[in-house]
Simulated assay, not measured.
Amino acid sequence: MSAGGERKKTACVTGGNGYIASALIKMLLEKGYAVKTTNSHFKALQALGPLEVFRADLEEEGSFEIALAGCDYAFLVAAPVNLMSANPENCVAQIKLACQKELIEPAVRGTLNVMRSCVKAGTVKRVILTSSAGSVIVRPDLQQGDGHVLDEESWSDVEFLRAEKPPGWGYVVSKVLLEKAANRFAEEHGISLVTVCPVITAGVAPAPTAHTSVPGCLSLLSGDEAAFNALRGMETFGVVALCHVDDLCRAELGRRRYLCCSLNTTVRDIARFLSKNYPQYTVKTNLLSGDLLEKPRVCLSSAKLEREGFEFKYKTLDGMYDDMIEYGKALGILPS
C-alpha cells in the first residue's frame, strides 16, 4: 500500500540481473511501483521500495505465473540466451538450422511463454517488450548511398540475413521474429503491447555486470577487441547509434513501437571524443584500422517518441560517458 492507503501499481520485470532490467527496476521503485522480478541475485534495490524476486525460466512453460500474479504491467527484458555475445564465427559456420534451433526459436518461444502467463494472470494491463534496433536497421537497400533515415516503420530483412549471414545475423532475426510473434499474440488476446527498440545503450545501471553495450562503448579505452567488434559491427550498417539507459527506461513507459535513439555518430567520432576528454587513457588507435565512416550514412530517428512529448536528457557523448568511466572501473572493464 502507498502512504495514502492506495494499492501501489505492480510491475514485473523479467531478467532482473541484466543491465537494462536493473536500471528499469530502480526507476520503477523510485516512481512508487511495487516490483516483482525474476532471477536477480542482488537485493540492494529493496531499500528503494517493495521488490520481490522469483525464479523463472523462459524455456519452462508457466514458470512466470507466480511472478506475474497480480501485476498491472509486465516488462519483458530477459532474453533466453545472451545473443549479442554469441560467437559470430561459430554462428556463420553452423548450418541455418542450428541458428534456428539455438538462437531464434528459443527467443520466440520464451517471449510467448511470458505473454501466455500475462493472459493467465488476468490483471496485466500492458506488456512492454524490449527488442532491439537490430530489428530495424539491417536492410540491403541501405548498403549504398547515405542520408537514409529509419524509424519504427522499418524492419530488418530476414531473408537477406538468412542468405548472407552477416555477424550476429541470428540475433537480429530472432528480434524481428519475436516482435512479430508478440504482435500477433497481443492482437489475438487483446493485450496492450508496447515495443521499445533500443540502440547501443550507455550509462550506469545497478547491475554488477554488463554485456555488449557498456564494454563496447569503453572498448577504445580498454582495448577489448571482441567488445570493439560489437561497436564496429553496428557501424557496418551505417551508424553507431546511442541512447542512455536512463532515457531508455523512461521510454519504456510509452504506448506503441518506439525506436529509442538520441545520438547518431561514428567510431571515429567516439575515438576523437575519448582522446580529448579522457587523456589519462590511451585510445587504442590500433583498433581504428580499416574502412571506418567519417559521418553516419544512416540516421535512426526517434521523432515519433519525441512527438508524443518524450524528451531525451542525454543527447551528446559527454552525457553518454559522464559517469560510465567510473562504472567501467567498478565493473573491471577499465583499470582503477
Rank of each mutant, 00 (worst) to 15 (best):
E6W: 10
T10V: 15
T10K: 14
V13R: 00
G15R: 04
Y19T: 00
Y19R: 00
S22E: 07
S22G: 12
A23I: 08
L24I: 02
L28P: 09
G32L: 04
K36G: 01
T37Y: 02
T37D: 11
N39I: 03
N39D: 10
H41C: 09
A47H: 06
L48M: 06
G49R: 05
G49K: 03
E52G: 02
V53R: 07
F54K: 00
A56I: 13
E61M: 12
E65F: 01
E65A: 15
A67N: 10
A69I: 03
G70M: 05
V77M: 06
A78K: 14
P80R: 14
L83P: 02
C91G: 05
C91N: 10
A93P: 04
K96I: 15
C99W: 05
E102D: 13
E102R: 14
L103C: 11
L103W: 11
L103V: 14
E105N: 13
V108I: 14
V108W: 05
V124F: 01
K125G: 09
P140R: 02
G145Q: 11
G147K: 05
L150F: 03
D151W: 06
D151H: 02
E152S: 03
E152G: 04
R162E: 07
Y171E: 06
Y171F: 07
E179A: 02
N183Q: 12
F185S: 00
A186R: 02
A186N: 10
L193S: 11
V194S: 14
T195V: 15
P198E: 01
P198L: 06
G203S: 03
V204D: 10
A207M: 15
T209D: 09
A210P: 04
H211P: 04
T212W: 00
G216T: 10
G216C: 08
C217I: 12
L221M: 06
G223D: 09
E225G: 11
R232V: 08
M234H: 13
E235I: 04
G238V: 07
V240W: 03
C243G: 03
R250A: 13
A251D: 09
E252Q: 15
L253W: 04
L253E: 14
G254M: 05
R256A: 08
Y258S: 00
C261M: 11
C261R: 01
N264S: 03
T266P: 00
T266F: 10
I270A: 09
I270C: 10
A271K: 07
R272C: 13
R272S: 15
R272D: 15
K276G: 01
K276V: 01
N277W: 13
Y278P: 00
V283Y: 03
K284Y: 06
S289V: 14
L292Q: 07
L293N: 04
P296C: 03
R297D: 06
S301K: 14
E308C: 11
G309R: 02
E311N: 13
E311K: 15
K313I: 00
T316L: 03
M320Q: 14
Y321V: 11
M324I: 10
I325L: 04
